[in-house]
Design a protein around this nucleic acid. Structure first.
Lengths: 231, 231
DNA sequence: TGGAAACTTTGAGCGCGATCAAACAGCAGA
DNA sequence: TCTGCTGTTTGATCGCGCTCAAAGTTTCCA
């Protein structure tokens, strides 16, 4: 498991203007790695040796504050770039990246970044837009944290998860990876107690159905109303 | 006032690998503009026609939420890029940009972005790192909003302002542009009342000295202790 | 110079959500 | 199958910071 099948990733916008040889060459520079559940892909403040493409699975990107409290920045899913410290002009990782299911990642030494960006405009553009989108989302979340009540924030977080990693079921949308009340509280800046109470209340209203590390959205519509503050 | 003096900006890292003609040519494509206090440089959701370099002054970058509440994302000061929608793959501005003092901005049509990035690696790299830094800061603020108390958040906001736009005085550091209690509350997700009470309490402890739209930090050390939550 | 507009201060009361506490349920490994 | 661990639920209480209210102060403009 050293060089993955090019066809898996040839279709990504990131590699739009790589020809077959270029892609093969580029993939040859990387190394794939299996990361089992709850292990780190990389860790905050660790020297950034490589940047990664998530080939399969889900990882949690989390920030650890000086006092030890953990905040979840986002969940990344298959196909996303992670740990692109070189693009940010950093030489350490700004966050932890933790596998929430067994994952496969493809990693390249940071030293190849500059050259790749220079040679392949599609790569540079796609990477830039990825960062741009994340910045946008981060600003939206700041605004949300600043103005919205806890219940609204939990609803927004669930909707975001559903959009990004939802799997359609017969009754609604299931978040496609194990996620605990604690996780949700770390995404929204509240406590697992409040998340639990909120989900229980929603369960009574048939808005969600949830279990141990499992959440299914039955009424995205209701959830949207809650998120927008007109309950 | 159509084409500014190249020497003003030649020293910026952004333009590190522009030679004299290249810089002159590039500046010729842009147009400078005076923006008086409280006027918008650009507005949220407006079609992004141009990106800007702030040549002089300070602007407030603010997000307006669907319900009309305003959140201040950051203050930009002289020398910063703003409204670089093309880098983010957007065709509208994601936020308002409002002059807090009379400003001079230099604007280029978005159409020149792609070409500029392709021809001048220093420009691409500097822009990328600018966005990276902002992403980093945004994540830090999310974490802060999620875990820190109001007093800590106000302290952090002041320290950030002091670092970015502080002017040394005989007694401490003065925030170099007019900033109200309301502004500070919109940066930290609280109310102007709470900000006022907090500043009053700090004034009694000789940590700050403040007046109408004017804040001077007397003890950055104390403020840091408060921000870190070990008061 | 007068008056209005913008900004700031301070008080009183209350509610959201944190904290403290304890029991319960699902899952993995012995 | 039992046992311990991890995650969830629910109750009781408390306090931070919002809301409502009103007065004070600075600046600007007519």
């Amino acid at each position: 498991m050293n060089t993955p099948d090019p066809s898996l990733i040839a279709s990504m916008p990131l590699f739009a203007d790589f020809d077959r040889e270029a892609l093969a060459e580029f993939l040859g520079l990387g190394q794939s790695r299996l990361v089992v559940r709850s292990q780190h892909v990389f860790s905050q403040d660790q020297e950034a040796e490589a940047f990664y493409l998530l080939l399969d699975g889900y990882v949690r990107i989390e920030l650890v504050r000086p006092n030890g409290e953990v905040v979840i920045v986002r969940f990344a899913s298959t196909g996303e770039l992670m740990g692109i410290a070189p693009a940010l002009g950093r030489d350490t990782y700004p966050a932890n990246s933790v596998a929430v299911v067994d994952c496969v990642v493809l990693g390249w030494p940071c030293s190849v970044w500059a050259d790749t960006v220079r040679r392949y405009p599609s790569f540079a553009t796609a990477a830039s837009q990825t960062i741009g989108t994340r910045l946008q989302e981060a600003h939206d979340r700041i605004a949300e944290m600043a103005t919205a009540q806890v219940e609204q924030r939990i609803a927004s977080a669930l909707l975001r998860l559903a959009n990004q990693s939802g799997r359609k079921t017969s009754d609604g949308i299931l978040i496609d990876f194990p996620i605990s009340r604690q996780d949700l509280s770390e995404m929204t800046g509240t406590t697992l107690h409040t998340v639990s109470r909120t989900l229980s209340a929603w369960e009574r209203r048939n808005i969600v159905r949830s279990g141990r590390k499992r959440i299914e959205i039955l009424s995205g519509h209701q959830l949207l109303l809650i998120a927008e503050g007109r309950t």
